[in-house]
Design a protein around this nucleic acid. Structure first.
Length: 491
RNA sequence: CGGGGUAUAGCGCAGCCUGGUAGCGCGUCUGCUUCGGGAGCAGAAGGCCGUAGGUUCAAAUCCUGCUACCCCGACCA
């Protein structure tokens, strides 16, 4: 395999990110600009994320459904803010047939669609069109639907996982009888995301509210979870929107309440995407390659037999026995390739982010033990290969998962800076990248001015700690502060 | 979409300036020996040089268009 091809983080952080992904064999580029192929090892991370979240959605009363990829163009025009937000990045289908010509194949001029179809950039419009047909009474509410789907946003500049033209995601779309109920749903799902990121991804995201300029096109309020990457930049890991009655009005979706009067329906939508895979990679990996928390690692344990011709049978029988004992509880791989030396296998699985490696040689067979190495710790240790092995390994992996969260949390805390003046922010953005927590007076023009000058944006008004703004003055305008804001450079 | 760079075997590169029909390392295949931190030897396979044109007796090499990728900006999950 390749030799030390991962650029160190300190040298070039984006090259490092690129290298880690390539070396771990997560994706391949596609012939179409901005699109990526998710290779099995990369897709498996998404599968683990999807399966975990799907359970959480179902546990909070949601059901899955599927809405079509194509949306009539006219639907996109119905909600004014929504059009403005998405019009610039939509792929549009205009023909339904190809035609062979001497110059090659072209869209058949005789097969132009009456109305062009937009490839969904998000599904609010088609879903609210359908909800209009399904809702007439308060008894039809709430509707709590989620869908797992792909969407397309024609992005100018792309990065694997973090921003691609087509990406996989889930979008929850709920319909409620009251504003309070919809707001509660918005916050409930935000909390689902937060807990998932902390517990499953070991990424200690912060929950917050977006300012008007960062709000979802068509939302009344946009909540978000923001994660800090190792270079101190922020990454929006998920959003949950309170849509008010905007889409219900645009698509004329009303219900008859218990008093018999017609009201517009209240809405939410919430989503996370394959960007989460990028967040996990960036949050935990090191200069040796991918590091994954055990809960989402496609392979949690790799067994590497160390054999010679005269002991191969003995060692392999032992390895197979250990693997059989661990399968069913863990995702286990036995690397029995005979064309690679054990050392080469160690490097390969380290690059690929396998949390626990178990080396088994003749000495271990004789001792009835296995020799273990954690991806995140320097030393190796031996465990008895008895009935308690699976429990012992479970404990080790749980501890690793918790340690990864602690480490990421410590980094986030160390790199969250409180500053009181704009001068200090500008100076420290260069020297000391991270998040900057400041007292702030909500003002879109000032926000834009700061972004233009520093490239830092307001990631959110964090839900926790807003009371700190009481009685303080805005670090930029000197006016009475309305919020505590997190400024940071972001992906 | 603006500025810059790149495109030659699966991967990383040389060859291009000074045109003459393609080479190196790694990987792959076969065999033997190896195997507790990136194995050794021997043999072999694999590329109409991103793509479409142009110049020329002749193009990987010179010229033009297009496409993709990377870096930096503006837009965004």
């Amino acid at each position: 395999m390749s030799d030390q091809k991962i650029t160190p983080r300190a040298e070039d952080y984006s090259r490092w990110y690129q290298d880690v992904i390539t070396e771990a064999d997560l994706v391949d580029s596609s012939p179409v600009r901005g699109c990526m192929v998710l290779k099995p090892h990369g897709y498996a991370i998404w599968e683990a994320i999807r399966d975990d979240l799907d359970q959480r959605f179902k546990a909070t009363g949601h059901v899955n459904a599927y809405f079509p990829l194509f949306i009539p163009q006219s639907f996109l025009t119905k909600e004014a803010q929504h059009v403005e937000g998405f019009a610039k990045e939509c792929a549009v289908v205009t023909h339904h047939r190809l035609k062979a010509t001497p110059e090659g194949v072209i869209p058949d001029p005789d097969a132009v669609l009456d109305e062009p179809l937009v490839v969904r950039p998000t599904s609010e419009t088609i879903i609210w069109h359908m909800y209009g047909r399904w809702i007439s009474s308060w008894r039809d509410l709430p509707i709590l639907i989620n869908q797992w789907a792909n969407v397309v946003r024609w992005e100018m500049r792309t990065r694997p996982f973090l921003r691609t033209a087509e990406f996989l995601w889930q979008e929850g779309h709920t319909a409620h009888a009251t504003a309070a109920e919809a707001q509660e749903e918005t916050r409930r799902m935000l909390e689902v995301y937060r807990d998932f990121c902390w517990q499953t991804l070991a990424v200690p995201v912060v929950m917050g509210v977006k300012t008007a300029s960062e709000r979802f096109a068509g939302a009344v309020d946009t909540y978000c979870i923001e994660g800090m990457m190792q270079n101190g930049w922020a990454l929006q890991a998920g959003t949950s929107h309170f849509l008010g009655q905007n889409f219900a009005r645009a698509f004329d979706v009303t219900f008859q309440n218990k008093e018999g009067t017609l009201e517009h329906v209240w809405a939410t939508s919430w989503g996370v995407s394959t960007r989460l895979v990028g967040a996990v990679i960036m949050a935990h990996s090191d200069d040796e390659g991918l590091v994954l928390p055990p809960k989402v690692a496609p392979v949690q344990i790799v067994l590497v037999p160390i054999t010679r011709a005269d002991n191969q049978e003995k060692v392999m029988a032992f390895v197979d026995g250990v693997a059989a004992r661990l399968r069913g509880r863990f995702r286990v791989k036995v690397d029995d390739r005979d064309n690679m030396k054990p050392g080469a296998k160690y490097f390969e699985w380290e690059r690929k982010g396998v949390p626990l490696r178990i080396e088994v040689g003749p000495r271990d067979v004789d001792n009835h033990a296995v020799f273990c190495k954690l991806r995140t710790e320097p030393g190796k240790f031996s465990l008895p290969a008895d009935e308690g092995l699976a429990d012992a390994i479970g404990a080790v992996l749980d501890k690793m998962q918790a340690a990864m969260l602690d480490k990421a949390l410590a980094t986030r805390k160390a790199r969250t800076h409180r500053v009181d003046s704009y001068e200090e922010l500008k100076a420290r953005l260069e020297s000391d990248s991270g998040w900057f927590l400041v007292p702030w007076t909500d003002d879109a023009e000032n926000e834009a001015a700061i972004k233009a000058e520093t490239k830092a944006t307001i990631r959110c008004y964090p839900l926790e700690g807003q009371e700190e703004a009481q009685g303080r003055t805005c670090f930029y305008s000197g006016r009475r502060a309305t919020h505590m804001a997190i400024f940071s450079r972001a992906y």
